[in-house]
Design a protein around this nucleic acid. Structure first.
Length: 444
RNA sequence: GGAGACGUGCCGGAGUGGUCGAACGGGGCGGUCUCGAAAACCGUUGAGCCUUUACGGGUUCCCAGGGUUCGAAUCCCUGCGUCUCCGCCA
């Protein structure tokens, strides 16, 4: 498997727009400051300056040697033995110098890139400043929590659900943060995934995609899981990484590609397993199936022209919201503040579904536009129709939705006083007309 | 798991040490012709980096990394990848 340094070598100077930093270091630092990142432009520019000086020195030496090497050929052709020997010696003497300078240039380049790889994306201007989730800004609220004439419970406490949601056996098989679903619960879970995918494909026009869940290491760099967040994912003994989300596979479809502008926008949807180590979340959401090492998700990814990413962001958010609306689940949508956004995002909309058992809105989808951040890492570009140089495209990703969490929401919102669960109408066709999990846990 | 073949530009495909960023063909783009289109003909057509106000200049790239050589797409080594056959297998 590829080593990180090798990879960084190939991706010379792409991680962030170095020219933008050169032109306006203060603005760069100011944008990062909004994410609580200490100023780094001075360090970047120093490395950049050193790098360029080394490159110039190395290339000058190389140019000299190339010119002399040409003279060698000419001298030999004309039979000038003395000149031949003289130029030959000249080239030979340049060799050590070139090697040293080239190595230095390469080292400077790698140093710069290693630094750039760790720097998060710059937030969009319209993203609110803030420290954590308390500073997120609500932009939409849909539906209102149902009035229960009894005390609603959490999903794993619903009498009709309990037989089909077995954490003990899952723990025996695999450990904590796993679940074994069976019977009606497993069936509803499957129905949800099918419903989501069908809706995205048939109504939202996304391209149904079935992807690998194990990927090469460089793909994890492409979408930004590496180098900083390797702890959050699993790697096999063969070097493959298990995807924490299909964002990794869907987005990397355009890894190292230059597509025609007419290819854009390209909108994908995939239903996959996702794997997360949940390192650092010890003690959080340990009850129920809210936070698992392995879960299913229907993911949406769009690659598009830079001019369209803001509109696509709204579109994708609406696609995710539409699923909840069809399911009749109350939700709200928030814009994440600078302190709560993921590293790769320029702007993120979190969609939070109402969970009556928790008496709270909980995240069920996260829809982000990444601007050119991932595209630069992946070297994903498009060729403008009007001609001209290839440009980096923009990438967006969003859950549409997390299937397990959606199951929780459907169960909690549909629970009845007698312990049964009434299921959303849109799922009925996927359940062969059945509508309810009765108090015994049977689908009827 | 065993055996073999291969890895060149948008595509196909030459090239086995200098004159190769790369023949030839296809495609794309521009033009001539045409009422228009097709055909034909002519021309043109990669990317990154450094430098330059600009024009331009330099440098790197023929899977990747090393090596041989005055000089490598071409020779050697290693790695990665793809394909084919056999075995095994959902």
């Amino acid at each position: 498997m590829g080593k990180r340094s090798e990879f960084a070598n190939q991706r010379t100077n792409l991680m962030l727009d170095i020219r933008m930093i050169r032109d306006n270091p203060a603005a760069f630092d100011a944008a990062l400051f909004r994410r609580k990142v200490a100023p780094v432009s001075a360090q970047i520019l120093a490395l950049d300056e050193a790098r360029r000086a080394k490159i110039m020195a190395a290339e000058t030496a190389q140019a000299d040697a190339n010119a002399a090497a040409k003279q060698v050929g000419a001298a030999k052709a004309s039979g000038n033995e003395a000149e031949f020997e003289r130029q030959r010696a000249l080239v030979a003497s340049k060799k050590a110098e070139i090697t040293a300078l080239t190595d230095e240039a390469k080292a400077a380049d790698v140093a710069l890139n290693d630094l750039l790889l760790t720097i998060p994306n710059l937030p969009h201007d319209d993203v609110p400043n803030g420290a954590d989730e308390h500073d997120n800004f609500e932009i939409k609220k849909h539906g209102s929590p149902r009035n229960f004439d009894f005390q609603p419970v959490e999903h794993y406490e619903i009498p009709s659900v309990m037989p089909g949601m077995d954490f003990e056996t899952a723990a025996k098989l695999s450990g904590s943060r796993f679940v074994l679903l069976s019977g009606a619960v497993a069936r509803v879970h499957r129905a949800l995934a099918q419903f989501m995918l069908d809706t995205h494909v048939e109504e939202n026009g996304l391209i149904e995609t079935n992807t690998p869940v194990m990927v090469r290491e460089e793909m994890m760099y492409g979408t930004g899981q590496l180098p900083k967040f390797g702890e959050d994912s699993y790697q096999t003994t063969d070097g493959w990484w298990l995807i924490p989300t299909a964002e990794v596979t869907l987005t990397n479809i355009v890894n190292n590609a230059t597509v025609e502008e007419s290819y854009l926008p390209r909108r994908f949807a995939a239903h996959t397993l996702c794997f997360r180590s949940e390192a650092g979340s010890a003690g959080r959401d340990t009850s129920g199936m809210l936070r698992q090492h392995q879960f299913e998700k229907v993911e949406m990814v769009t690659v598009c022209h830079p001019d369209h990413s803001d509109a696509e962001h709204l579109r994708m958010t609406a696609c995710a919201e539409g699923i909840l609306e069809k399911l009749g689940l109350p939700y709200r949508t928030v814009v994440l503040c600078t302190g709560d956004m993921g590293a790769g995002a320029r702007r993120t909309h979190d969609i939070e579904v109402w969970l009556p058992g928790q008496n709270a809105y909980r995240e069920i989808s996260s829809v982000s536009t990444c601007g050119d951040y991932q595209a630069r890492r992946m070297n994903a570009r498009f060729k403008p129709t009007e001609g001209g140089k290839p440009e980096f495209l923009h990438t967006l990703n969003g859950s549409g939705l997390a299937v397990g969490r959606c199951l929780i929401a459907v169960l909690e919102n549909g629970q009845q006083a007698d312990g049964s669960v009434m299921l959303p109408e849109v799922l009925h066709p996927y359940l062969r007309g059945k509508t309810t999990i009765n108090a015994n846990g049977t689908l009827v």
